[in-house]
Design a protein around this nucleic acid. Sequence first.
DNA 1: CTCGGCATGTAAACAGTGTATAGTTGCAGA
DNA 2: TCTGCAACTATACACTGTTTACATGCCGAG
Lengths: 217, 217
Amino acid sequence: MTTMSSKSHLPAEKDEGRDTYHHGALRSALLQAATDILRENGPEGFSLREAARRAGVSPGAPAHHFGSVAGLLTEVAINGFVELTEALRRARTASSSPGSQLRSQGESYVSFAIGAPGRFQLMFRHDLLLENDERLEAAGQAALAELETSIRDYLTTGLSADESRLQPLLLGAWSTVHGFAHLAIDGKLHTMAFPNSLVHFVAQALPEVLLAMLPDR
Amino acid sequence: MTTMSSKSHLPAEKDEGRDTYHHGALRSALLQAATDILRENGPEGFSLREAARRAGVSPGAPAHHFGSVAGLLTEVAINGFVELTEALRRARTASSSPGSQLRSQGESYVSFAIGAPGRFQLMFRHDLLLENDERLEAAGQAALAELETSIRDYLTTGLSADESRLQPLLLGAWSTVHGFAHLAIDGKLHTMAFPNSLVHFVAQALPEVLLAMLPDR
DNA sequence: CTCGGCATGTAAACAGTGTATAGTTGCAGA
DNA sequence: TCTGCAACTATACACTGTTTACATGCCGAG
């Protein structure tokens, strides 16, 4: 029945208490709900049923769009890597000297992490993500490629364009910002002599760290 | 019934299929089981019921010794920090020059992490651990203090005993080895130009990284 | 030596979780 | 217009951590 207005209710935006059997935009609604939950409660506070609850559907509904909870979270993680890549690219192209490129990217990396800790943690929690997912791996590689570009610029601008130092420096820089991000999220840095807020922390401490760690030029 | 043999079976070591009502050494048995599960399946594969199952007791039994699952895991994490501290101390005292102290400690840190990835991850998963546990925090601080000692040696041996560089260098070194450990555990380093096994990886890549990152002396 | 307190264990139940299955709805293309 | 099939519901299952009431038996006080 109610066959009238055949193509009337396809979008329906946010159906709080919806009256239609089909949601209409459940996939994006679930992605949004999952992102919200991750921001509020982190990866451990996440549950697929809660996401379904917020989207106003039954617990089994998400399976039709994402297969499993790992499928949904993988999609969120991919979005995270895309945003991270964009942030790193902005930091790289907006800076002039290769040295400031690196420092700016480092700040971006950590800012991204502590700006959305739950999603950042998720992005490296491969026990919660699909294994061997090509799109996820490609998204991660894209972010890494941004770092590599800056490292390469940094090296080629120097006197010795030593290609053999590329991998160690890239690995070291990535490890540093990645470890810094993890420690900051875990609150392990509050006991150190940086009493500021985390945002201040990144803006002040990280450049100092990178300057102390980077070889003299 | 079976009230005979009153004080006959108090230790019983490992009671596979035990006949006594009381386990006798349940606390240590649960710690061992938890450590085993973490080594086999990581933090996500861990379950309190499985630990109880391996110890041969009912699901409610662990509560009497650890209160909650977080209580048990906190104990395992503390043991991990103690072992890490010892490893870092050995690396520090066994090395001669301050530079080799740092590199040796870096290798120890990462080796410890990839040697028992599940437990290492647990040690920084404060959503699985008791919050504001004094013993846990003290154990973590002790490990950090080992790093700080080496950094201090490294600085004071140099020409300029610049105290202002202590915190940044400590923070940078910790971030580097910590991030390196996480990336290695997450398998993010296999795509890079280090085709060796992880153990080889640490022995070869990390010194190279640290040498490239440490300021020239 | 006996006997009660209490730490240590069991058993069962509860509210959660992710997912599989069977059934229902209704859009979309032939 | 009809029908296939994607999308959704309802239910059930096995699993989780924790709580409750109860059982056991060690250990020290009288």
